[in-house]
Amino acid sequence: MKEILTFVLAIVSAMLIDNVVLSRFYGICPFLGVSKKVKSALGMGIAVVFVIVLATVICWPLYNYILVPAGIEFMDTVAYILVIASLVQLVGLFIKKHSPSLYKTLGIYLPLITTNCAVLGVAQGNTDQALSFIDSLANGLGTSLGFLFVIVVFSCIRVRLESANTPKALKGLPIALITAAIMAMAFMGLQGLFSGIV
């Protein structure tokens, strides 16, 4: 029971407290690039959840059961990025077969999940901090769910910003970044949420 509670709290903590986009700065490029429409943001977020969870599930055993016994831990970055690139191709084929409209909406952003810092950042971070499999999985789930949450909220706000009367110099990217700053401020208030529990 305690393990389940710790697991759930670890996920929520990775999702809210040290939010992947607003606090750790992974995944900013798709965060700014895909969030112009809510539907594409939602699709991108769900695809990222899939890729990060699958990548964590594959990369942790790859590191601990193949690379470490062979003594080539230093190949972890190369191995991870190849795994992630192939995973993204596979997820792309899967989406193309099951939901062609989503595939068209995501367009060029699907291959860009490969260069999403969040995916490699989670895999590499799990290795650097030497987390156990359950902790890595919690980290991966929390990170990807946090990304999904933030990108959807941000796209909802950004859709409204398009029709707002912003100063000409701030139109487009600068006002979006200021919105992200205000969101980051809001998330800062969540720090210390679990200081009594975990």
Binding site: L22, S23, F25, K168, A169, L170, K171, G172, L173, P174, I175, L177, I178, A180, A181, I182, A184, M185, M188
Partner: peptide, 19 residues
């Protein structure tokens, strides 16, 4: 020094360049 400031500085520089 916090992430908030990073976004604000980036927005400011982009805004100045757009201006």
């Amino acid at each position: 020094s916090t992430p908030v400031g990073a976004f604000i500085v980036f927005a400011f520089i982009l805004g100045v360049m757009a201006f």
